[in-house]
Design a protein around this nucleic acid. Structure first.
Lengths: 218, 218
DNA sequence: CTTGATAGTGAACAAGTGTGCACTGATATG
DNA sequence: CATATCAGTGCACACTTGTTCACTATCAAG
């Protein structure tokens, strides 16, 4: 069974570029699937290609190395993370309680893209070289944007960029902790889910109380 | 060069148990050294034994598998983490500012045992199976103890166990973030170190402000 | 209709992997 | 002093790994 002929059978009338893109995505998805309970470093090129249904050497038609695939995974995962922020902004405007709505979108977005979030969390510290660096850079950028968002609140308009940044970091750290808890727990257990988001709300509330009482020193 | 005869030459008058323990520790140390910029999953049995200076098959005289070595690493690393808490308690009594002294001991302890802290942070999420579970359990226990400690403060004596636990989790999460920053940075860069602990102090201060203004709901 | 580009194939390679086995020689014990 | 224990050796095995190379069948373009 040749993947070329197979492609022809399953999808008629597709351009060559489209099909290339498709198997490329198949590789990405295969990797993401295998990374559910594994590590990028412990994932072999051959495993990915086997899972994707192509021959090992064909891998190189799409990526120069596993490291390259890793970077792609970071990119794609970060895209859904940014999507989450966009979603959060939208939901916030329609609702009244910032905390509840934020945590709610966090929850639904994580559940809708578990693989991406899990990957980010796993490789954030475990990743090697470029992958780890890419994640760190993206998360820094992410926190910076949040800091800008925070600065738009009336109560914080006068605060230093450094203070805003610190608060953003703290919030990101806390929320990433929640993400990991969600990704770790058994998917079907709604009970546990509710408990986790309840804790997340409390955490966020405590931080915001700290923010409200904040007074910069020096 | 046989490790048996070598042992005899370097250390005269040592019991067999002692020497076994010594090469066992050599394996642990070798692993920790290799894990500075790698992953437990990507670390092979043969690499560890080579680094330790023994033959691959001798590994099994000390550990049943790499997973077993991993568990040992968790144990050892967690011991130094507990040692840090003990140290923090001691320093706190002699000083006045809880935040400053706590962060200071965190800093010196991390710098004194970088390998252990790095290992914990890496494998906390990246680890597979038993290792990850062991770390999760230990950290949960760790947070529980901190919660008890918090409960001893006069201001929090009346609070619910759940609230205390939530605050402890938040503090642990924030401090672990600081640990990773420290472990990541170039060891020689004192400037960066100072900046990191300054941020750590701010973060902790903000959380404590939140704690001071906390009022449980429902 | 012909022809060049190219996504995917399949065999081969050297290198590295975990583990089984029989062994050796220093130490502990009777 | 004799003997049993056992930490460490060395060879062997069957597998998996990343990467090379020449190939083939399809699609796109002239």
């Amino acid at each position: 069974m040749d993947a070329r002929t197979l492609n022809v059978v399953t999808a008629e009338q597709t351009t060559r570029q489209e099909r290339k893109q498709r198997t490329r995505q198949a590789l990405v998805d295969a990797a993401l699937r295998l990374l559910i309970d594994r590590n990028l470093a412990s994932l072999s090129l051959r495993e990915v290609t086997k899972e994707a249904g192509i021959v090992p050497t064909a891998f190189y038609r799409h990526f120069a190395s596993m490291d390259d695939l890793g970077i792609t995974l970071v990119d794609e995962s970060m895209r859904t993370l940014r999507g989450m922020v966009r979603e959060a902004r939208k939901d916030r405007s329609s609702s009244e309680d910032v905390i509840t709505s934020s945590v709610q979108t966090l929850y639904s977005q994580v559940r809708a893209n578990e693989d991406h979030f899990r990957f980010i969390m796993r490789e954030r510290y475990a990743g090697t070289g470029r992958v780890r660096a890419a994640i760190a850079t993206e998360l820094r950028l992410f926190a910076s944007e949040l800091a800008v968002d925070l600065g738009r609140f009336d109560e914080m308009r006068a605060w230093s960029a450094e203070d805003l940044r610190m608060m953003a970091d703290l919030i990101v750290t806390a929320m990433l902790g929640t993400v990991m808890e969600l990704v770790d727990v058994d998917t079907a257990d709604r009970e546990a889910d509710m408990e986790i988001i309840r804790q997340a709300r409390k955490r966020l509330r405590l931080i915001l109380i700290g923010v409200a009482g904040w007074r910069s020193e020096t």
